[in-house]
Amino acid sequence: MSTGMYEGAIQDLIDALGRLPGIGPKSAQRIAFHILQSDSEIAANLVEAVRTVKERVKFCTQCGNVSEETECRICRDPRRDGTKICVVEESKDVIAIERTREFRGKYHVLGGAISPIDGIGPDQLRIRELMQRLSDSTITEIILATDPNLEGEATATYLARLIKPMGINVSRLASGLPVGGDLEYADEVTLGRAFEGRTNL
């Protein structure tokens, strides 16, 4: 690692920014100097936003999504179909699916995926809470929307084996070709998956 070249407060800020995901030492330095040179109002707004997010934002007691109330906006909405639950890894996956406007059911946020080398097993995820929700007999369908990688697949397999014996319909999001793309640019793994998951016309 490069050694700190600045003194005191500015280096403290660079170090703090550098610990954020996706920000390397050079970006941290650029952001720090941007803050230093901008209006004190902008800096104050940032400080305030960081403080309130930690104070005010909680996790929905139902689905585990981020929320300012005990229950999130989606769980409170009576128009949402309570018989379908879409299981995702993170809150940001909820936002991604919401943008499609395809799904009108409710969500369950696990808080990650099973990964033994990172010390994350079923007990570290919100799986017990999901099972509690499923004991409510109105739920008839579960859509597993974990990431299409090794850990996401393992999590989906684990959940499917747990939920299927309860007589609930379980499905997994399809993986295949990106829409609007060219077939020739798809990598072989994606193309292979798309072949496996082909549909009848």
């Binding site: 080398i117 397999t157 684990y158």
Partner: peptide, 15 residues
């Protein structure tokens, strides 16, 4: 990693 923690069979199945 999972085998070393003597994890139950249902945790091993996905892997």
């Amino acid at each position: 990693t999972l085998l070393k923690t003597r994890a139950p069979e249902n945790a091993l199945v996905p892997w």
